[in-house]
């Protein structure tokens, strides 16, 4: 990471996170592919592994996952000021949009055309999330390490079929890592 942290950097961070938050349709997870596309693939500010580390921590911290992720990534890239920049850039778009929507609630909520546009965007967001999941899983499975694959399958099954609490799953997987995955080959 050899970027200069100046006013221009904070502006870029704010602007990109603001736009990302504006397009986070349908829940916190959608912010992951969007942040990854910007910070990892376009700007090369951080790596895939660092992004996943931050998402893992954001996920296990109380609060809203998308906001936590933006705070952690902002902090990773530019310290406390970066964290605050990330936070405000994430909450401002919904604050503005919802304030307008709340004022014209009936007009917006009942409008069929608006619903169609949002439905289309929801499908797009699903595709983006699938795309990131495929990328990450492909990369992990190609390393041919048994333990991470077991964790992925067990966590997936426990979450989808048995509705096991996410916090519990994250805690168990963290403990497995603590005891059995300190080796460099897992990082």
């Amino acid at each position: 990471m050899d970027k200069k942290i100046d006013a221009k950097f904070y502006w870029t961070l704010f602007k990109s996170t603001f736009i990302i938050s504006m397009f986070t349709v349908g829940g916190g997870y959608v912010i992951i592919p969007l942040l990854k596309a910007k910070y990892v693939d376009e700007y090369h500010w951080i790596s895939d592994e660092e992004t996943l580390n931050m998402v893992a921590i954001a996920q296990s911290t109380p609060g809203i996952m998308a906001v936590n992720t933006a705070i952690m990534l902002g902090y990773r890239m530019a310290g406390v000021l970066g964290a605050i920049t990330g936070m405000f850039a994430t909450i401002l778009p919904p604050l503005i949009i919802i304030s307008i929507v709340a004022t014209f609630y009936d007009l917006v909520a009942q409008n069929e055309q608006v619903k169609l546009v949002l439905k289309g965007m929801q499908c797009g967001a699903t595709a983006l999330l699938l795309n990131v999941a495929i990328d990450l899983l492909q990369k992990q499975f190609s390393k041919k390490l048994i333990l991470p694959i077991v964790i992925i399958l067990a966590t997936f099954i426990a979450n989808i079929f048995f509705n096991v609490n996410i916090m519990l799953l994250v805690a168990i997987d963290g403990l497995i890592g603590l005891f059995f995955m300190r080796d460099k080959k897992y990082s």
């Binding site: 592994e49 996920q59 994250v170 890592g177």
Partner: peptide
Amino acid sequence: LNGLRPAVMALI
């Protein structure tokens, strides 16, 4: 963190 990354992949 090595244990959490696969967990996050599964949750995604």
